[in-house]
Computed example of a mutant assay.
Amino acid sequence: MFEVKFFELEEVYMRVGEAPGVDLVRYLIWIAFSVATLGIKNYAANAKGLNDILVVIFFIVGIFTLALMIRRFNHERSSFAEPRKKFLSSLVNNIGFITLMFVLIVVLRMMISYLQVNGKLPKFQNDDVAGSNQKVFIFNLIANVFVISVQQQLVQTGFFFNYFFRKSTPASAIGGIVISGLIAGAITLPGSLLQFFMNMFFGFCFALTYLYTQDEKMPVFLGMVSALIGTIMI
């Protein structure tokens, strides 16, 4: 059953074609939006508290760019052969796989946090600021879960598989998962190779979820869960 669903991608998700150069330029723009938004967020909160001006800039830039990305994705999605799936319907139809990925992501996030607390893993350089400032925590929680995670999923899975690796072959699927994971590791602006590889592995999980469920809402949901657990467990 997995193999049948996994390799239906070309038939179901083939979008109206455009010149490869147009897709590449457009994709680089989405990457720039995602990286710029994350960069502003990282500077908006520090050990001393929030930079109010940067917080305002973050929400303006983040919400505006996210709205553009969602609008464009939905527009491209309208050219797909299959009707748009509802979240609950897609979740129920793939409940076994989504539950597996949900548990895997939560357990990995908790293990990473546990190892960091016990000194077995280093504190990542650009992790969210941990401290007693409740405003910083709330800002990071809202920013990570509702803006950053959604943008990153649109970049590393949604737009990525819309533009590239659309053939329904094992080589295309595996290549897409690998490249998507590398992009996922890079756009998180990792402070170390260890952090890059950690985020790359999560990227593999999200890409596999997208290909299996054929619904962008599923990796977005898991990405939001991952961001929620990651922010809380700091």
Results as ranks from 00 to 15, higher is better:
Phe202Ser: 10
Gly185Gln: 04
Gly176Gln: 04
Glu216Trp: 14
Ser192Arg: 12
Phe164Glu: 01
Ser113Trp: 07
Tyr163Leu: 05
Ile177Arg: 08
Ile183His: 05
Gly185Ala: 10
Ser226Glu: 10
Leu154Thr: 02
Ala184Pro: 02
Val103Pro: 11
Ile187Tyr: 00
Val145Arg: 01
Arg166Asp: 03
Tyr210Ile: 04
Val103Ile: 15
Phe159Met: 06
Leu182Asn: 05
Pro190Asp: 11
Asn93Val: 10
Phe159Ile: 09
Gln134Thr: 15
Val129Pro: 00
Asn133Val: 02
Ala130Cys: 05
Ile142Ser: 02
Val117Gln: 14
Phe204Leu: 06
Met200Asp: 11
Val220Leu: 02
Ser192Asn: 11
Ile177Thr: 05
Leu108Glu: 10
Tyr163Ala: 10
Phe146Val: 02
Met101Gln: 12
Met200Gly: 11
Gln195Glu: 15
Leu182His: 07
Leu193Gln: 08
Val145Ser: 05
Phe97Gly: 10
Val225Tyr: 09
Gln153Glu: 14
Cys205Lys: 01
Thr188Asn: 13
Phe202His: 09
Asp215Met: 04
Phe204Gln: 01
Phe97Glu: 06
Asn162Pro: 03
Met101Glu: 08
Val147Lys: 03
Met218Ile: 13
Leu189Met: 14
Ser168Ala: 14
Phe137Asn: 00
Val117Met: 14
Gly158Ala: 12
Pro122Lys: 06
Ile183Asn: 02
Ile138Met: 00
Glu216Asp: 12
Thr169Ser: 15
Val155Cys: 04
Leu211Val: 09
Val155Ala: 07
Thr157Lys: 05
Ile138Asn: 01
Asn199Gly: 06
Pro122Asn: 08
Gly158Tyr: 04
Ser226Leu: 13
Phe159Ala: 07
